[in-house]
């Protein structure tokens, strides 16, 4: 049995992986084929690609 109180990264190996895919869509089918739960994100650059605003948002904790 895994230690239920251990840090999350230790529990990751014992549990089931469910994935959010951000980027290359090809990875989604592979995970599907292996019976892994996956949600694909229709990703666009943060803040419409404005790096200054994206950095500001990151600092504000988006």
């Amino acid at each position: 049995m895994t230690d239920q109180n251990g840090p999350q990264y230790q529990r990751l190996l014992a549990g089931k992986v469910e994935v959010v895919n951000v980027g290359l869509e090809g990875f989604v089918k592979d995970l599907h084929d292996c019976g892994i739960g996956v949600v694909h994100v229709d990703w666009k650059p943060s803040a419409g690609g404005d790096p200054q605003m994206a950095a500001l948002l990151a600092k504000l904790g988006v």
Partner: peptide, 8 residues
């Protein structure tokens, strides 16, 4: 407002 600007 952060989510609005981030996501567009």
């Amino acid at each position: 407002i952060r989510l609005v600007v981030d996501s567009g």
